[in-house]
């Protein structure tokens, strides 16, 4: 029964606030209800009303009416604060399954007014508070749990605000059609599942990382900080990156077929661990999965590409 109800609610929400990469909060999408504090406030107003009657004190009565009216005005102000906010799906910060990733949400004051104290979070994530000024947009990374590998649907974004008086809470549940990539959770251990070159060299050389030193070049953003020639920097010669030539025989292919003893999901996890390990050692590596070949390479972008391939393997969600 509860499941049915929840299903029905999800369907209703879907109809009311359909998924979209860009959602402007308006009448159809905003819900509003008094908070506990709001009810307390009304109770105080009611108490004062009764007090006013009993003491035959018109001023106390007027005070209670004023509080009530303030509450009514707060309805509009609270609603107004959320209405007109535009939410857009932004980038993502993938993470490992079982850990947390984050998705970027861009909050845009669609109209030229302040929207203060907006609280945003993904279900299961931490919430963040922000305010956007007129014509401003603020992007924020919100974390979320990643229960499994692949592209994780974060469910609906929760946005709410109690500004200005905290008497009412206006909120919306927005499906930004956003997905967060979850890499397989690294499974440590085992021998390096590498083919190409000689396997043992792969292992031996791993620590040395001493490929042929080729020269220096000026540091560009994105270079691994481990490759920076720090000694030269200390001498005041600026940031330079050490270049190494990849020894042809040392290229490694992380190979799915090298892990026959593991179930498919664990194979991916083991591969993921070795990706991190090889990356740490500044070794070039490629990836062989059934139907997927990624040429050897190095660096953070390469690592991401490999991890993404592992994350999406076999899920039919490649893009």
């Amino acid at each position: 029964m509860r499941a049915r109800l929840r299903q029905w609610y999800a369907r209703w929400l879907r109809r009311r606030i359909p998924p979209a990469q860009r959602v402007a909060l308006d009448r159809r999408r905003i819900f509003i209800f008094p908070t506990g504090y709001g009810f307390l406030f009304l109770a105080i107003a009611a108490m004062l009303f009764i007090g006013g009657i009993n003491y035959e004190n018109n001023l106390i009565m007027a005070f209670s009416f004023l509080l009530t009216s303030l509450f009514v005005m707060a309805i509009f102000h609270t609603y107004r604060n959320l209405s007109g906010v535009v939410l857009r799906a932004g980038g993502q910060e993938p993470g490992f399954a079982g850990g947390r990733g984050s998705l970027e949400v861009v909050v845009d004051a669609g109209d030229r007014r302040w929207h203060r104290s907006l609280w945003l979070r993904w279900p299961g994530g931490h919430q963040r508070e922000l305010s956007v000024g007129p014509g401003e947009e603020i992007s924020t990374l919100l974390d979320l749990p990643l229960p499994r590998r692949g592209r994780v649907d974060p469910n609906r974004l929760r946005i709410h605000s109690r500004y200005p008086l905290g008497l009412l809470r206006a909120w919306s549940l927005v499906d930004l059609d956003h997905r967060c990539l979850a890499w397989p959770r690294p499974l440590p251990g085992g021998a390096c599942p590498a083919s190409g070159g000689s396997t043992d060299q792969g292992q031996r050389n791993a620590d040395a990382g001493s490929d042929d030193f080729r020269g220096l070049r000026a540091y560009v953003r994105g270079d691994s900080l481990r490759l920076v020639d720090w000694k030269a920097y200390a001498r005041g010669q600026g940031l330079n990156t050490k270049l190494f030539s990849d020894p042809v025989e040392g290229r490694r292919w992380l190979d799915w077929d090298q892990l026959p003893e593991l179930a498919p999901e664990y194979r991916l996890q083991r591969l993921a661990w070795w990706v991190l390990e090889l990356d740490r050692q500044n070794t070039a590596y490629g990836l062989l999965l059934p139907g997927v070949v990624l040429d050897p390479g190095q660096g953070p972008n390469h690592r991401r590409a490999i991890l993404e391939a592992l994350a999406l393997y076999g899920l039919g969600e490649g893009d």
């Binding site: 009657i53 018109n58 009416f65 009216s69």
Partner: peptide
Amino acid sequence: VMLLQSLPLTVLLFLIMPRIAPLWSM
């Protein structure tokens, strides 16, 4: 601003809401 916006409604309530006799004597 919010208080000023509340005043008209307050006046209306004040003028129209019935005055009941005291519920208990004070």
